[in-house]
């Protein structure tokens, strides 16, 4: 999937994370901030990379601010940010526009 625009997903509440994704010319750059980075930093980055790979995202800047989220929440927030970021920049990022976007649920499993 091609990242067409900057997009956000998630919150800064406890057990959640905020994901910001933006277009990048070549390759992936992941910036990770977490309250539990020493214990779980490697695992969080692994989940982010695997999630992006399943969605075939190869060029993107991904900034994660983690507040102690479980793996499945990390996965969900990264997927949401990616799907929002694949809406063409000229289109309004409206709930209706997002609702109409086709979702390949097998790629999100």
């Amino acid at each position: 999937m091609r990242i067409m625009r900057e997009a956000l997903a998630g919150t800064l509440e406890s057990s959640d994370l905020m994901v910001r994704i933006a277009p990048r010319a070549e390759g992936l750059e992941i910036v990770l901030q977490s309250e539990v980075i020493h214990q779980f930093g490697i695992q969080i980055e692994k989940v982010v990379r695997e999630t992006l790979a399943r969605l075939d995202v190869v060029d993107a800047l991904v900034v994660i601010e983690d507040k102690g989220a479980l793996d499945c929440v990390i996965k969900a927030r990264v997927q949401t940010a990616v799907l929002r970021a694949t809406v063409a920049p000229g289109d309004a990022l409206s709930p209706r526009r997002i609702a109409d976007a086709p979702v390949d649920w097998s790629a999100l499993s």
Partner: peptide
């Protein structure tokens, strides 16, 4: 909220598989 419908749906999709 309307703006979080997509995010909630994906979150619940994963929560159901926990």
């Amino acid at each position: 909220s309307l703006r979080e419908k997509d995010a909630a749906r994906i979150l619940v999709f994963h929560a159901l598989q926990m």
